[in-house]
Design a protein around this nucleic acid. Structure first.
Lengths: 223, 223
DNA sequence: GTCAAGCCGATTGTCTGACATTCTTGCAAT
DNA sequence: ATTGCAAGAATGTCAGACAATCGGCTTGAC
């Protein structure tokens, strides 16, 4: 059985660079939901040709980060609350499972990294930088997902979280949400550190439910 | 609350047509795992231009149905057993949940459709057409997933099942697998028909586990 | 005969330019 | 106000081109 090291370095092609840039732009809320993305504008802004841009857009379309309607072009989908709810439900399913598995199998070094990322979030939570809060919180989850022992679980979860990045930024700005989020995450961390699968599952479930509730509040108030 | 009917007709563009055709080709096993897809060949075979093909390939790449390594081009990924296991595990998570929800909320008409699809599979199972078996079985699941009340669950599940289509075809040809699969599916159906959530979950879990075991056998014997 | 180096064809990454089709928008007419 | 039409903008699709890169084959050295 060859380990099949993934040693191949991947040259950064224009396409990949473009996908990453656009994805980040979407995460940071640069484009409003519902707004249309005009190819020619993006081409000049990114300094690339139309074929390259269109390839990148197809990738993002398949990730469900943008929508492409024939003859109307790409746009940022406006997430309905029904779909958002559905995403949170599946996220709960995956995240609870991941936290439970993580509690049973995480290595000491990774546990230290997890603690570090929790501290980073703690620092961000006391500031008002909601982007930093979302980013550090994402780091925290991604460590958990990376240590659940199932790369597919991680991959699917990442895809889903990406689609609700819009809500995450907004709900983090809610009064007190960052602090209560911190408390919930700390409980998840401590359950995992104790190797208590059941507690990790419970804490994780609680956290997602609270996040969903916060998202609903921010949506109702904001629209 | 506007129903927001999806009344917009979507013109069949070359890109979508191409994606569908290639996806079907992959499902039916036309391309061997690990084999490379040469752009120029596909262009002439499909009768389309290279930019259109490349857009389609980017879509399939994002769906993880093909891999694109820079400067080496697209190829069919060879699914390792570790990844396949991971997929089956997540599939179990999703499918069990869907079956349970479906048992509580499916409508009488949809239940009839489900019964019909079960009959269709029964017929296919007694034949030797393994492609028909896979297709009709897929119909059965897709009805369950479509009635679980969560479109995201359905979407993610579809994506995962697509990636193990290779195994599904092979394991269905195993001696007696189609028949035992039929028995398992019938149990799922009857649990759902009875509105028994717990039984539906249990039967569904059993079915996925058996499918995974069959896939493992077919992989070990085939390689 | 084996192994390494280097060359060459094949393939991909990317761009430019073009054109038909379709959508949008503004305006005129009823 | 609503309808219909026309101009402009944007997209879908193609053809062709060229540099960069990869894989295999030949060649040469030992």
């Amino acid at each position: 059985m060859t380990p099949d090291l993934n040693l191949r370095i991947s040259p950064r092609t224009v396409q990949r660079e473009t996908v990453d840039k656009l994805r980040l732009a979407i995460f940071s809320g640069l484009f409003q939901p519902g707004s249309r993305l005009v190819e020619s504008q993006l081409c000049t802004q990114l300094g690339i040709s139309r074929p390259s841009l269109r390839e990148a857009l197809r990738s993002l379309e398949a990730e469900r980060l943008i929508e492409i309607v024939p003859n109307r072009g790409p746009s940022i989908p406006a997430l309905s609350w029904e779909v958002a709810t559905a995403i949170y439900e599946v996220r709960e399913l995956l995240e609870v499972e991941a936290a439970g598995r993580c509690a049973l199998r995480i290595s000491p070094e990774q546990l230290r990294d997890l603690e570090k990322s929790l501290s980073a979030f703690e620092e961000a939570a006391s500031s008002n930088d909601s982007l930093a809060q979302v980013m550090t919180a994402a780091d925290f989850y991604s460590i958990i997902l990376a240590n659940c022992g199932n790369p597919i679980l991680e991959e699917v979860h990442r895809g889903l979280v990406a689609r609700i990045s819009f809500f995450r930024g907004r709900s983090m700005s809610l009064d007190g949400r960052a602090q209560s989020s911190l408390a919930e995450m700390r409980e998840i961390f401590e359950s995992i550190a104790a190797g208590d699968e059941k507690a990790a599952r419970k804490a994780s479930k609680q956290h997602v439910l609270k996040a969903k509730a916060a998202a609903k509040i921010s949506m109702d108030s904001g629209l």
